[in-house]
Simulated assay, not measured.
Amino acid sequence: MTQTPTRIVALVGSLRADSLNRRIAEALRDQAPEGVVVEIASGLADLPFYNEDVDATQTPAAAAALRELVAGADAVLAVTPEYNGTMPAVLNNAIDWLSRPYGAAALSGKPFGVVGATPTPYGGKWAHEDAVRSFGVAGAVVVDGAVHSQSAIDVNVLEDADILGRLQAVVESLAAFQPTAA
């Protein structure tokens, strides 16, 4: 009997094709542990800014597709840089779309973690704290130990085995998460 793999959807907070955080997401996808599939969400650039009037009349195709992808996942991982001391607008907008409709949102109860790297001393810590807060408010369950902020000053994040191990540990934490009984 084969077991269904754990599906983790990665939301990348940078739209740049060759961004360090996109490459981190790709490395996590390519090196996912056995029994885990990391799928990088596409189309975040196609999401219009959230507007409840639009959502109530005809949800845009990009938003409906993202909701379906996340609803079918076992967990969500944000892989994001930090822009001006906070998370990028594209990630915040994705949260807005994924947090609705209220009571039946795709994020409701989803295990969540966040990783990323920036060429700053704090490695995106503020953006990651904001993501934890926003995803939690939106209904996701922030998994203990599933946050890693990495400075990319003087280190190649993608070639340092110790750093890659810490990033992969977040994926493993999400895959192993078991909700506590209420």
Rank of each mutant, 00 (worst) to 15 (best):
T4R: 13
A10T: 03
G13R: 00
S14D: 03
S19W: 02
S19V: 08
N21I: 06
N21S: 10
R22M: 10
R23T: 11
A25S: 07
A25N: 06
Q31A: 14
A32H: 09
E34T: 09
V36T: 06
V38L: 05
V38G: 00
I40K: 01
A41M: 05
L44I: 10
A45I: 12
L47Q: 09
L47V: 04
N51I: 13
E52I: 13
E52S: 14
D55S: 11
A61M: 13
A62Q: 06
A62S: 07
L66A: 03
R67K: 10
L69C: 07
A71Y: 02
A71S: 07
G72F: 09
A78L: 04
V79R: 01
E82C: 05
M87E: 07
A89S: 13
N93D: 07
A94F: 00
A94Q: 02
A94C: 11
I95P: 00
D96L: 12
W97Y: 07
W97F: 05
L98I: 06
S99G: 08
R100F: 04
G103Q: 08
A105C: 12
A105F: 03
A105T: 06
A106E: 02
A106I: 04
G109W: 10
P111E: 05
F112C: 04
G113T: 04
V114T: 05
A117C: 09
T118N: 08
P119Y: 07
T120K: 05
Y122C: 12
K125C: 15
W126H: 15
D130E: 14
A131R: 00
A131I: 03
V132S: 10
R133A: 15
A140Q: 01
A140H: 02
A140D: 01
V141E: 04
V141G: 09
V143Q: 00
V143M: 03
D144H: 15
G145P: 01
H148A: 11
Q150P: 04
A152I: 03
A152R: 00
A152L: 04
D160H: 02
D160T: 04
A161Y: 08
A161Q: 13
D162A: 12
I163M: 03
L164K: 05
V170K: 00
E172H: 07
E172W: 07
S173N: 14
L174T: 02
A176S: 10
Q178Y: 13
Q178L: 08
T180F: 13
A181E: 15
A181I: 15
A182L: 15
